[in-house]
Computed example of a mutant assay.
Amino acid sequence: MLTYSDLESTIIEDLTLAWNSCWQGYAYETQYSEAQMKAWLEKCQIDLSQSVALKKSDRIIGFSLLALENKLGWIAGTCINPEFRGQHLFEPLLKYQLKKADSLILKGIQLEVLTQNHAIKVYEKIGFRKTRELYVYRHTKDALSAFAPRSRGGSVFREAILSDYFHARNESGFTPPWQRREEYLQRYPSLIARLNPEGTAGVLMTKEGQVLLDAWTMAWEQVDKLVSAILTMTQGDFRLTNQPKDCLTGYLSQHGLEADDIQYEMRYS
């Protein structure tokens, strides 16, 4: 018999096992240790009391995770164990999650989904609407050998305090996706922010590991220097997730650097 329940009382060991099992076969198979799972839940602000498990007996065979922040919701993952796919379980699981979220009176619920994922049809069927495309770049130093921005302006980007960084980003008019909202990024334990002198372009990275988390500018004349700064700070790599279509993506495409994947940002309200 299949049953639904919330995940509030689920121990981290069982949740990690369910996560690693259910994501098998997806384009990006994310596998977590228990410590990584716990850290990810905290960073995303997943509310397990409002998230849903689909169970067969006591085994979690599917789940939907709901993050909550400022009266907005984010579906951080909805999936079914490979053994049970093709049995029309995904749609009722997601409907159950949305019904559970109704009592929270949210302003809206968002999610991101790869454009080639067939789940898009289900999302649209139950009321999600595409809001924009988000680009995923995963280019290594070796793959970028033929990519050469005209200027080398990385040195003009100076370290900034985080409050100044996010203020400048807000003033620029940049609208971040969920995983690049200020509240989300501030939860990383160690960050370094850099701004150009005009405060019209910025880069945010982890201090350890030099992972690029955020890059933005709304000024076309600053893109060349922004890209140069990124390549300097990442030692030649360009890996950036969920970049909205803007002058940065336009510049990259113009110079032959296309996204590895594209996601739809979708919203339910």
Score class of each variant (00 low, 15 high):
8 E>R: 14
56 K>G: 08
106 L>G: 04
237 D>L: 03
158 R>V: 11
219 A>H: 12
244 P>S: 09
174 F>Q: 05
72 L>T: 09
127 G>Y: 06
259 A>T: 04
34 E>Q: 15
189 P>H: 08
83 E>L: 13
40 W>H: 11
147 F>P: 00
5 S>N: 10
176 P>M: 07
268 Y>E: 07
68 L>Q: 06
146 A>C: 13
147 F>H: 08
18 A>R: 08
146 A>I: 09
1 M>W: 05
31 Q>L: 12
42 E>D: 14
77 G>L: 04
76 A>T: 03
173 G>V: 11
220 W>Q: 12
25 G>V: 09
154 G>P: 00
215 A>E: 03
87 Q>C: 11
196 N>Y: 00
46 I>A: 06
194 R>H: 11
27 A>W: 00
9 S>V: 07
10 T>H: 01
220 W>N: 10
153 G>S: 12
246 D>M: 08
158 R>T: 11
125 K>I: 12
46 I>L: 09
210 Q>C: 13
2 L>I: 13
233 M>W: 14
32 Y>E: 07
22 C>D: 10
82 P>M: 09
263 Q>S: 08
250 G>L: 03
147 F>T: 05
178 W>M: 09
210 Q>Y: 11
120 I>A: 05
64 S>G: 15
195 L>A: 02
125 K>T: 13
239 R>K: 13
173 G>D: 04
201 A>E: 08
121 K>P: 00
207 K>C: 13
233 M>E: 15
112 E>C: 04
138 R>Y: 10
110 Q>H: 13
65 L>S: 01
27 A>R: 05
197 P>I: 07
35 A>V: 12
155 S>Y: 11
34 E>N: 11
152 R>G: 09
249 T>M: 06
200 T>C: 11
217 T>N: 08
218 M>T: 07
91 E>K: 15
124 E>Y: 04
10 T>Y: 01
84 F>A: 05
107 K>G: 14
57 S>T: 05
82 P>S: 11
195 L>M: 05
95 K>S: 10
221 E>A: 10
186 Q>L: 15
213 L>I: 06
33 S>V: 09
140 T>I: 02
74 W>Y: 14
48 L>S: 02
10 T>L: 14
124 E>C: 05
8 E>K: 15
181 R>L: 12
196 N>Q: 04
37 M>K: 03
63 F>E: 03
10 T>F: 02
59 R>C: 06
192 I>Q: 13
99 K>S: 13
230 I>Q: 00
151 S>I: 07
242 N>K: 02
247 C>Y: 06
172 S>V: 06
51 S>Y: 01
157 F>M: 04
34 E>L: 06
48 L>P: 02
88 H>K: 14
165 Y>Q: 03
158 R>E: 11
212 L>E: 10
187 R>H: 09
58 D>I: 08
